[in-house]
C-alpha cells in the first residue's frame, strides 16, 4: 500500500442538526434543533480502523450516516482523499458511492425481502456498471465464498431463509463487492447472538486485511472495539471527548466518561462482586445540551469551571482529550 500514513478521510468541523417540529404558536421563536453532531473533527489514515464509541443518543450513528452521505451535513467538510463529500450532490455523489459503503446495525432490516441474495450482492456492480453479466456472477460467487457462505447454497435464497449472522455476512458481502476504500460499520454486532458476534468481528478483520480497507467502526461496546480498532474516539452528545490509540485508551483512559465506559463492561467473573463506581443519571437529550462541558452534570470530578467553559479537544502529553482536569 503506497499510501500508508496518509489520510484517507479527514472530517473537519462536521455538524448535523435536525430541526424539531414546533407548534404553530411558537413559530416566531427561534426554531429548536437537535444537535446530533456538533462540530466534530477527526481523520482516518489508509488501512486504519477508527472506533467511534458512545451510548445511544451520542450521535455516533448520525456521524456514520453523514459520512456516507445518507444525511446532508449542516456544516463542515468531509474530505475523502481530495474530494469534499459534503459538497457532492446528485449524479457525482451517486457515482462516487462505489468507493465508500455502510453496514447497518439490523441485518434483518437491511436486506430487501424480495431480492435474492445473489441479486442483492450483484446490484451495486450493476448500478456502477462494473463488468458484464458473467463477470459479475463470478465476482458475487467469489465474495460469497469470502464471507463464508457457500455460493451454490446461498445465491438463490431469499433473506428470510437466513439467520441473523448469515444476513450480516450478506450485507458485508454487498458492501465489499465494489472494492470500496472506506466502510462505515454501524453497530454491526449489536443485534446478533453472543456466539455469532465474534465470528462477524473476525470476518470484518479478515476482510480488512485482505482488501486493505479503512473502517469507521461505530459501537457502544468498548470491549469489541478493542479487537478491531487501531484508534478509538469516544463521543458524548455529538462531541468527541477523547481520542487515542486503542492500547492507550484501555491502559490509561483520561476522560472520566471513558473511564466509566470501560468500567461498565460486564466481567464474567463472580468474584468481581466488588462495589464498582456506578455513575448516576443518563445521557441527556441532545435538544438541551448542558452548558460548559457536556458531561459535567454526571461527572464525579466536576469542578466550577466545567459548568461554564466547554473544554477543547486538545493534545496533552501526546494524548488527545477534552477535559478541564488536564488543563
Amino acid at each position: 500500500m503506497m499510501n500508508q500514513n496518509q489520510k484517507l478521510i479527514s472530517v473537519r468541523n462536521l455538524k448535523k442538526y435536525f430541526p424539531l417540529k414546533v407548534s404553530w404558536l411558537k413559530i416566531f421563536k427561534e426554531r429548536p434543533y437537535v444537535r446530533a453532531v456538533d462540530d466534530l473533527s477527526f481523520e482516518i489514515k489508509y488501512g486504519e480502523t477508527l472506533g467511534l464509541v458512545g451510548e445511544s443518543g451520542s450521535g455516533k450513528t448520525t456521524v456514520g450516516r453523514t459520512l456516507v452521505r445518507l444525511e446532508n451535513p449542516t456544516g463542515g467538510q468531509i474530505l475523502f482523499e481530495d474530494v469534499d463529500l459534503a459538497k457532492l450532490f446528485g449524479e457525482s455523489l451517486r457515482t462516487k458511492r462505489k468507493d465508500f459503503q455502510m453496514i447497518f446495525q439490523d441485518p434483518m432490516a437491511s436486506l430487501n425481502p424480495y431480492m435474492r441474495i445473489g441479486n442483492a450482492i450483484e446490484h451495486p456492480l450493476k448500478i456502477h456498471k462494473m463488468g458484464n453479466k458473467a463477470e459479475r456472477k463470478i465476482r458475487v460467487y467469489e465474495i460469497l465464498e469470502k464471507v463464508g457462505l457457500p455460493p451454490e447454497e446461498f445465491y438463490n435464497r431469499f433473506p428470510r431463509h437466513l439467520s441473523g449472522g448469515q444476513r450480516q455476512r450478506v450485507v458485508i458481502a454487498r458492501a465489499m463487492v465494489t472494492n470500496p476504500k472506506f466502510v462505515v460499520a454501524d453497530e454491526v454486532t449489536a443485534m446478533l447472538d453472543v456466539s455469532i458476534r465474534s465470528q462477524i468481528l473476525k470476518l470484518l478483520i479478515d476482510m480488512k486485511n485482505e482488501f486493505g480497507l479503512t473502517y469507521l467502526f461505530i459501537t457502544h461496546d468498548l470491549a469489541s472495539a478493542k479487537y478491531i480498532c487501531d484508534k478509538i474516539a469516544v463521543i458524548y452528545l455529538g462531541k468527541i471527548i477523547e481520542i487515542a490509540k486503542t492500547y492507550d485508551i484501555f491502559k490509561e483512559p483520561l476522560h472520566p466518561y471513558t473511564k466509566i465506559l470501560i468500567a461498565s463492561v460486564p466481567v464474567p467473573d463472580p468474584k468481581m462482586k466488588k462495589k464498582k463506581f456506578i455513575p448516576s443519571g443518563e445521557i441527556p437529550s441532545p435538544i438541551n445540551i448542558p452548558s460548559g462541558c457536556r458531561f459535567h452534570p454526571r461527572c464525579p470530578y466536576a469542578m466550577e469551571i466545567c459548568a461554564k467553559v466547554e473544554p477543547e479537544l486538545k493534545e496533552i502529553n501526546g494524548r488527545t482529550v477534552a477535559c478541564h482536569l488536564y488543563d
Partner: peptide, 24 residues
C-alpha cells in the same frame, strides 16, 4: 467454556478474538 472465552473483554493482555464456529 467456549461462550466464556469468546466474550469480548477489556483486558489488554487478551487481544486475540476467539469465537465459536458455526450457526445456531
Amino acid at each position: 467454556r467456549l461462550l466464556l472465552i469468546s466474550i469480548p473483554n477489556v483486558k489488554l493482555e487478551d487481544m486475540e478474538l476467539k469465537y465459536i464456529k458455526g450457526n445456531l
